[in-house]
């Protein structure tokens, strides 16, 4: 084995060990707790919502994949369904570093919510990216569902069609909607981990 290969191997082992420390949260395990300030200046902790289902949506309003789901109203429909039918809490989280695409001031975020007719419980700003990293949020949109006991039940994509074409939304499986229905029916979530697709989160 050549010296170069040994280097590659050593580097990958090291990487494997180091990334094990900041690995993605696991479905079936308690979701990492966090405290963030929303656009109104109120602090929210995940633990405040014990007893309710919580949905986390990583977002970046300029990302074409986020636009794909906001422009035809798919994301807003899911927000209404989750909050009105399932008594869930919907938190939209923005982890874009200041100066990068998707980063907004609280006022701009509220303006976006109004103009897009969005319906989140709160929009949380995570400028440091700490919460995004704790959840290993990779793309926008990246979705998580946490149950009333604080256990992570779903993580992954918004739907099953990794494209930027809004016309294929009706043909896709809307994973969050399906998962919420299965949780309400007391069933196992059939697809609890799916491929998140979209734009990279700009940490």
């Amino acid at each position: 084995m050549s010296y170069r290969m040994m280097q590659v191997l050593a580097a990958s082992l090291l990487l494997a060990l180091s990334t094990a420390l900041m690995a993605a949260p696991e479905v079936g395990q308690p979701a990492p707790d966090f405290t963030l300030t929303d656009t109104q200046g109120n602090e929210h902790s995940l633990s405040d919502f014990r007893g309710q289902t919580v949905i986390l949506e990583w977002t970046n309003h300029d990302c074409p994949f986020v636009i794909k789901h906001y422009q035809p109203g798919n994301m807003q429909d899911q927000q209404r369904l989750a909050r009105n039918e399932h008594d869930a809490v919907w938190l939209s989280i923005i982890s874009s570093r200041p100066g990068t695409q998707g980063h907004v001031s609280p006022e701009e975020a509220d303006e976006l919510t109004a103009s897009r007719d969005a319906y989140p419980t709160a929009v949380l700003i995570d400028e440091s990216g700490d919460v995004g990293r704790a959840y290993d949020a990779r793309v926008t949109p990246h979705m998580y569902i946490i149950d009333a006991e604080g256990i992570l039940r779903y993580m992954g994509g918004i739907d099953s069609n990794p494209s930027r074409n809004p016309e294929d939304i009706p043909d896709a499986t809307q994973y969050v909607v399906v998962a919420l229905e299965q949780m309400a029916a007391g069933e196992e979530i059939a697809e609890a981990v799916t491929r998140p697709y979209g734009c990279s989160v700009h940490y």
């Binding site: 084995m1 290969m5 590659v8 191997l9 580097a11 990958s12 082992l13 990487l15 494997a16 990334t19 690995a23 993605a24 290993d136 993580m155 992954g156 697809e191 981990v193 799916t194 491929r195 998140p196």
Partner: peptide, 23 residues
């Protein structure tokens, strides 16, 4: 996590950690 590629004994062995989203 870059794959480790090892060539020995007439074969190439590749190992790469599974995705956190592997089902």
């Amino acid at each position: 996590e870059a794959p480790s590629v090892l060539a020995e004994d007439g074969q190439v062995l590749i190992s790469q950690p599974l995705s956190a989203y592997f089902s």
